[in-house]
């Protein structure tokens, strides 16, 4: 039961991180998003940058991000992603969910304070 939960967690987290990155950075291409997440998480979260594309497709499908073709800094055709209104709403919901979850897990795992006697 442990393994699938961990995978689920990771997937949901990646979506959340992508949304968060787009809010703070504005429109970005896939590489930019991947780099930004790596920087923020100090290279701990993402094993492969390629996995980001599944998340981008999924988020686009759900209408939480939008994509537009543009030109990258090295003059290549690149797809720029930006967050949509419903994406922002989703991010707010997910963020509060994560905060509650991590607070709860933090409380439960806290060594002594308020724990079982």
């Amino acid at each position: 039961m442990v393994i699938p939960q961990k995978l689920d967690l990771l997937q949901g987290t990646l979506d959340l991180l992508v949304l968060r990155t787009l809010v703070s950075m504005g429109p970005l291409h896939g590489y930019g998003i991947a780099r930004r997440i790596e920087q923020l998480s100090e290279d701990e979260v993402l094993l492969n940058q390629g996995t980001i594309y599944a998340a981008l497709v999924r988020l686009q499908d759900r209408g939480w991000i939008a994509a537009e073709w543009g030109v990258s800094e090295n003059n290549r055709r690149a797809k720029y992603y930006s967050i949509t209104r419903s994406g922002r709403k989703r991010l707010a919901e997910e963020t509060s969910y994560w905060q509650r979850l991590s607070a709860m897990i933090g409380r439960v795992l806290a060594p002594s304070e308020g724990g079982p006697k």
């Binding site: 492969n48 390629g50 996995t51």
Partner: peptide, 18 residues
């Protein structure tokens, strides 16, 4: 190396796509 397998990235996208 940092990107990982191109094939599995594509597969991931296909799966997400439908």
């Amino acid at each position: 190396v940092r990107f990982g397998s191109v094939t599995s990235a594509k597969e991931g996208a296909w799966e997400a796509r439908g």
